[in-house]
């Protein structure tokens, strides 16, 4: 039993709209796991249910052998599961270092200690030169790095990354992917929602495909994206299988 995160029968309805139905999969410690699926499939809802921003209608979410469904977001963060946002949400009125310091207070109550953790995390993501400038002066790629630094400052066992790479150039994407691999090597599991199939296949060992709120396929990334049903749902009818 080294399943870090385990979902069983997770469903979420908004009134009559069934956003998720009977979703189940598991993520192991230290792996990079992908959640993929077409637009509107329910990926972000699934994310919100895991991170506590929304409460699943039914089903269970178990993290480190403890049920976390229904907990408040800050409690889930304190249990070692932290998320980033698809649309970055920096604290614009604070400096870059202070942004990370907020997250560092989860484990470090002392002010000097929290500041030291924040600066170490910024160094890790290559933002140490920007530590004392306002967060409103960063560009989008730097803000994504800031999201990673903040998440890592909470000392997580698992990070949920919601479309971390959308809108970045190829160079920026490659640089952030390398950082994500480095984080995974340190034993932190990553769950990514991502649209770019090349990125998913190069980054993630296993994946789950969500379509119309249900699990369509689950397993090793290459097997999953070769699955003809997945290709049809996710990519439309494709004649040539370019990724095989």
């Amino acid at each position: 039993m080294n399943q870090l995160l385990q979902l069983e029968g997770v469903s979420k309805s908004f009134g009559g709209l069934r956003a998720l139905h009977d979703v189940g999969f598991s993520v192991e410690a230290g792996e990079i796991f992908a959640i993929i699926g077409p637009n509107g499939a329910g990926k972000t809802t699934l994310f919100n249910c895991i991170a506590g921003a929304q409460k699943p209608t039914s089903g269970s979410i178990i993290f480190q052998e403890r049920r976390i469904d229904g907990l408040r977001p800050h409690e889930i963060c304190r249990s070692g599961l932290v998320r980033t946002f698809q649309i970055v949400k920096p604290f614009l009125g604070m400096t870059v270092a202070d942004n990370v310091r907020v997250a560092a207070y989860v484990h470090e109550r002392r002010n000097a200690g929290a500041d030291a953790v924040a600066r170490a995390m910024l160094k890790q993501v290559g933002l140490d030169d920007y530590a004392d400038v306002g967060a409103d002066e960063l560009n989008i790629a730097q803000l994504r790095r800031l999201e990673i630094a903040r998440a890592m400052a909470t000392r997580p066992r698992m990070v949920l990354l919601d479309e971390m790479l959308a809108g970045l150039t190829a160079t920026e994407t490659e640089a952030i992917c390398e950082e994500l691999r480095e984080i995974a090597r340190q034993g932190v599991a990553l769950v990514v929602v991502e649209h770019s199939i090349p990125v998913v296949s190069s980054l993630c060992s296993r994946a789950v495909v969500i379509n119309f709120g249900e699990v369509m396929a689950h397993g090793a990334t290459l097997d999953v994206i070769r699955d003809p049903r997945v290709q049809e749902a996710y990519l439309g009818k494709v004649e040539a299988v370019a990724w095989s």
Binding site: P73, C77, K89, P90, F91, Y105, T154
Partner: peptide, 12 residues
Amino acid sequence: DNEDAAEALGVN
């Protein structure tokens, strides 16, 4: 500055 982000980072 951002309540959602703060909660996700462990702020009650």
